[in-house]
């Protein structure tokens, strides 16, 4: 049969239906079973599924009327087809697609599908990572307790005022036991959905602020859930923070594609909470360093 690509309008022969790539422009397209010519990409929002309520919907400054729908075929993610694929294969395929091929993955995600699917996927990743990391966290905790014990012994050598500042920190940090670490990991896994909802709410507020909320709260929540893949490295020493960074990049990618907005707005929405958290952490760090220096200066 002859197929017309909705992206570049070129016509090419194909001997099968289903998802495939245009040989001319390389875009992913979906060929229907009946062998009709593919005329256009699927609309991003299903008919009868209006965007969810929000405070400041609509295009922002300079965006003008609703832009034409971007080309691309939206389909259920492998995770949403887990009954057909099997749970393990569905998780692995979704993880591989979202983490390793985000350029192909995000334009294919449907913004109007239930966001609870993304929550379940993210929860599975988060819970498995949290539980699997217990041995590593116990080892790290034991190491840090040893180091803090040594630090506590050295506290006596420090000036009195600095010692008073550092002592409660050293004592509280070294007080954790293996049981605490295990309880923390299990509690973290159980309470993951609460954190997810808070994160999605904050990100959607930022999306409203930058005028990138076309798909509603559900689309933002789906971006957060399916961006959770890189968090599998969260507890690895030295590189764990990269999980957060790459997850933020994927979330921005998801916001861009699911809300059909620009890169600037999507990155802005994701960066605002990061900047606030970073400013806060910097303030605490600077306050700590400032307190230490001023105590050193004041000490005889």
């Amino acid at each position: 049969m002859q197929v017309r690509c909705p992206h570049c309008a070129s016509v090419f022969p194909s001997d099968r239906a289903g998802t495939q790539f245009c040989p001319r422009c390389g875009a992913q397209i979906h060929v229907p079973e009946e062998g009709q010519v593919v005329e256009a990409g699927l609309p991003p929002f299903a008919p009868g599924a209006p965007p969810e309520p929000s405070g400041a919907e609509g295009p922002g400054p300079g965006e003008g009327p609703t832009p034409a729908l971007p080309p691309g075929v939206r389909e259920p993610t492998p995770w949403e087809r887990r009954r057909e694929l099997g749970l393990f294969k569905a998780v692995v395929e979704t993880w591989k697609a979202s983490v390793l091929s985000p350029r192909r993955f995000w334009p294919s995600v449907r913004p109007e599908a239930p966001w609870t699917e993304a929550l379940l996927y993210g929860w599975l990743i988060g819970a498995v990572t949290s539980i699997a990391s217990i041995p590593l966290r116990v080892w790290q905790q034991r190491r840090s307790v040893d180091e803090l014990r040594e630090a506590a012994e050295r506290l006596e050598e420090l000036p009195a005022r600095l010692r008073d500042i550092l002592r409660p920190i050293v004592e509280s940090a070294g007080a954790g036991t293996t049981g605490d670490v295990v309880a923390q990991a299990i509690l973290g896994a159980l309470l993951w959905p609460v954190g997810f909802i808070i994160l999605a709410a904050v990100l959607h507020l930022c999306c409203l602020l930058v005028g990138a909320s076309r798909g509603g709260f559900g689309a933002t929540a789906r971006a957060v859930g399916y961006a959770w893949g890189p968090m599998v490295i969260l507890y690895l020493p030295f590189i764990g923070w990269l999980g957060w960074v790459y997850a933020a990049v994927l979330a921005a990618w998801g916001v861009k594609e699911l809300h059909e907005t620009t890169w600037e707005r999507a990155v802005g929405a994701v960066v605002i909470p990061f900047v606030v958290v970073c400013c806060f952490a910097c303030c605490l760090g600077m306050a700590g360093v400032g307190a230490a220096f001023s105590s050193l200066r004041a000490s005889p």
Binding site: P53, I198, A291
Partner: peptide, 30 residues
């Protein structure tokens, strides 16, 4: 929906503000 997500966020935030003395627990708060 979104309002419910804000409700969860508000409930957690206000509960922390009500029962957790953050400024006393976190070192160098200020």
């Amino acid at each position: 929906g979104f309002v419910d997500a804000l409700g969860v966020t508000g409930a957690v935030g206000l509960a922390i503000a009500r029962w957790v003395p953050v400024a006393r627990i976190v070192p160098f708060w200020g």
